[in-house]
Design a protein around this nucleic acid. Structure first.
Lengths: 173, 173
DNA sequence: ATTGTAATGTTATAATATAACACTTTATAA
DNA sequence: TTATAAAGTGTTATATTATAACATTACAAT
C-alpha cells in the first residue's frame, strides 16, 4: 500500500479499507466516476477530475482549502470558487459526500445507488472516515419520519468515536 | 402563543411544539437549566443565561452571529468570543445542541438524560428543528458500531425535509 | 483581605464559503 | 463553418463562522 504524498498524517486504514491496494482503489473510483459522467452527460472536466483524485488520494475527509493547497502545488493556485464549484459538481453527481462535522469532503464509494442513506463512522484519533450503508437504520429513519409525518430529503448521520485499529493501538476512548 | 420579537420569520411550530404556550416553554427551559446548573455546580452567568433565553425565544436554530446581534440590541454588543464561550458552556452542560448542517444552535429539551442520542428533523421550508429521541435508532447505531468494532462517542443525525405543517400549506417536496 | 480560578473583555485573525462579473471553452444548430 | 447559447472557469472582493492570545474583572475559598 502506497501512502499518498498529499496527506502525511495518514497513518492507517479503518476496517473498510483494510488490506486494500490504495492506488488501485483510486483508479477504480476515477474510472467509475468517468463512466457515471459519460452515462449521464456530466462533464468531468480537468479541475473536477483532479479534485476528485486528490480526495481519493488523501483517503480521508479533505477540506476545501487543503484541496486548494494541493492544486497550488501542481501549477497555478486557483481561487476558492474554483474548488467549491468542483465540489458542488461532485456532490451533485453523487461522487463525493460532505462531512458536516468536519467541514470536509470524502469520495463516495457507491455513486450509483441513491436508494438509501450514507452514514459515516469518523475516528477522532486517526481522522479516517468510513462510509456505511445500513438498511436497518434506513428503515428506522423512515419509520420515524412516517410517525412524524415528515418528508425526508436528506439524511446525515455522523458517528464519531474510535476505530478498531486505533483501539488496538491503545487509543481507546 | 406569543411570537418572539427576535425572530420575525418565525411562522409556525413543528409537531413537537404544536399548541404549546411559547412563553411557558421558555420559562420551563430556563428553570430547568437553573436547576441543572445549581445541582452540578455550573455557573449560569448572565451572558450564558441570556444566550440560552435567546435561543429558546427564537424557537429555531440560531446562529452565533444572530445571537450576537440580539445581544447588541439590548446594550453593548459583545465580541464573538463572548457568544462562543457561552455556547461552549451550554453545549458542555447539555443545555443546547449544535446543528452541524446549519451552523446553528437549538435548546435541548431533555438536559438530564445522556443515555441516548438526539436526532433532528429539520424543515427546509420553515427552518424549524425538532429534537427526536428514538430508541430503535439508538439500538441500530449501537449494533452497527458493534459490527464495526467502533467505540461511539458522538452521534449526529440530521434529517432534512418538509415538516407536516408545511406540507399542509402546500410546500411539499 | 488575599489569592487563585473562572469568567469576560478586547483585538486580531483564522477558516470556511459565496457573490458578482469577466472571460473562455464547449456543444449545438443555423 | 461560423454564430450563438450555455456551461465552465478566472478573478476580485467579501461574507460568514470560529478561534488565538492576552488583559481585565468577578467570584469563591480560604
Amino acid at each position: 500500500m502506497r501512502n499518498s504524498p498529499f496527506m502525511p498524517e495518514f497513518k492507517h486504514a479503518y476496517s473498510p479499507f483494510k488490506n486494500h491496494q490504495h492506488s488501485q482503489c483510486i483508479h477504480h473510483a476515477l474510472c467509475s466516476a468517468e463512466k457515471l459522467c459519460k452515462e449521464n452527460g456530466f462533464r468531468l472536466t480537468n479541475v473536477r477530475k483532479r479534485v476528485l483524485e486528490l480526495i481519493w488520494e488523501s483517503h480521508q475527509a479533505l477540506g476545501a482549502y487543503a484541496i486548494l493547497e494541493q492544486l497550488g502545488q501542481e501549477g497555478v493556485k486557483p481561487a476558492p470558487p474554483t474548488v467549491y464549484r468542483a465540489l458542488d459538481f461532485l456532490l451533485d453527481a453523487g461522487l463525493v459526500h460532505r462531512i458536516n462535522s468536519l467541514n470536509a469532503y470524502i469520495g463516495c464509494n457507491h455513486p450509483k445507488d441513491h436508494h438509501h442513506g450514507s452514514y459515516f463512522l469518523i475516528c477522532q484519533h486517526c481522522r479516517i472516515v468510513a462510509e456505511i450503508h445500513d438498511q436497518a437504520i434506513d428503515e428506522e429513519i423512515s419509520a420515524l419520519a412516517k410517525r412524524e409525518a415528515f418528508i425526508v430529503c436528506e439524511r446525515a448521520l455522523e458517528i464519531s468515536g474510535i476505530c478498531q485499529r486505533c483501539q488496538e493501538n491503545g487509543h481507546a476512548g
